[in-house]
Amino acid sequence: MTAPKTPIREGRDLLTPRPLSVKRAVNPHASGSAHLKMGRTEILATITLEDKPAPHMRGSKEGWLTAEYAMLPRSTADRQARERNLQNGRRHEIQRLLGRALRSSMDLKFFRNQTLYVDCDVLVADGGTRVASILAGHAALHDFCDHLINTGKLSDWPILHNVGAISVGLVGDEVRVDLDYLEDKVARADLNVVATDSGLLIEVQGGAETGPISMQEYSQLLTTGVSAVQGVMKDMARQLAAVH
């Protein structure tokens, strides 16, 4: 069997993520919002604060954060049908990942008896939509919290950790950061690494695709992923600070 061709990257080396750009306060109706581009992948994230506790948080001293994820019909080459009632397994899995990642970033004691909704909509998909959604969600939460501080609704910054994510994979024998769609299709293994800008690990999702990999390869993927998240978060912090 002929081995799959190794995709050639345009304008970046194997350990460099795709170009990142983020703009916040892009939706005037949302409590916080951000538009994020990572290569050709584009995400719109919005924040809604509801003065109602999640059912399982009634009586708790903390609020709750939940996330929703959707791909717009023409975010891909073929039209994605809108989901009306039942959600597919992939979407449900991604929503749970987003919720866990973004909850870990927040001090929810500031939102007692309230629920934060983070809605992430994929405008254009070219691989890495779940990690890009975590980044967009974090940027939208930053915008939301900045507004609360500037309007005097909060005196303390409620974001405990700056949380980001990146994909990392083995394409042939090469470790590559931030796989696009063509690379993801032929990767021997790929991980989605969620971590903080200080290098603390939150979650790892993924594994081997075409056969087992060694512990050394897995460790290399993980270490590379955490380091790449730190670099991406440094770039994001610079862009968020430049927007007022």
Rank of each mutant, 00 (worst) to 15 (best):
G169K: 01
A241M: 07
G152Y: 10
G137K: 01
D78V: 11
E183N: 04
I47L: 06
H147W: 11
E93N: 09
D107L: 10
D51T: 10
A67R: 04
R100A: 07
G59R: 05
V22R: 00
K23Y: 07
R100L: 06
L141W: 02
P17T: 08
P55Q: 04
D235I: 04
E68N: 14
Q239C: 09
K5F: 12
V168L: 12
V229Y: 01
S75N: 05
D180G: 07
L182M: 11
V22K: 00
G152W: 11
A139V: 05
V163F: 04
G172I: 03
S105N: 04
H35N: 07
A34I: 00
E203A: 15
S75Y: 00
A81P: 14
I166V: 15
G225N: 08
K61A: 14
T210C: 11
L102C: 07
R103W: 09
N192D: 08
M106A: 06
L20F: 05
T66W: 05
E10M: 13
S31Q: 14
L191W: 01
A101Q: 00
Y218E: 11
R90F: 09
V243S: 10
E93T: 10
H92I: 14
L86C: 14
T129R: 06
T129E: 04
D78S: 13
L240A: 00
R91P: 01
S214V: 01
T76G: 06
I159C: 03
M1N: 15
T223F: 04
D146N: 13
R176Q: 08
E50C: 07
G152P: 07
E83A: 14
R188P: 01
S227G: 12
G211V: 01
S227L: 13
N113H: 14
L221Q: 06
E68A: 13
R12T: 12
A67P: 03
V186G: 12
T48F: 03
C145R: 00
G199Y: 13
A136Q: 02
H161T: 05
K23I: 09
K185F: 10
K185I: 11
A241Y: 04
F144H: 02
G137S: 13
R84E: 15
G225L: 06
E174C: 12
S75G: 05
L108N: 05
M1H: 14
D121Y: 01
N192P: 03
D121I: 02
P4A: 08
E10P: 03
L201P: 04
H29A: 15
R112Q: 15
K185Y: 09
G89M: 12
G152R: 09
G199P: 08
V168G: 06
G231T: 09
D156K: 14
Q216R: 12
S104C: 13
D178W: 05
G63H: 05
L191E: 07
P53T: 11
T16A: 09
V193P: 00
V163M: 05
Q95E: 15
L49C: 10
L154P: 02
L160S: 15
S214Q: 01
N85A: 14
P212T: 13
I159G: 00
N150L: 09
R91C: 10
F144P: 00
F110R: 07
S167Y: 03
D51Y: 11
L49K: 06
V124M: 08
H161F: 12
L20C: 07
R96L: 13
H35C: 02
E68C: 12
D143L: 08
R9P: 02
V175W: 02
T2N: 13
A132S: 15
L108A: 08
K234Q: 13
A187V: 11
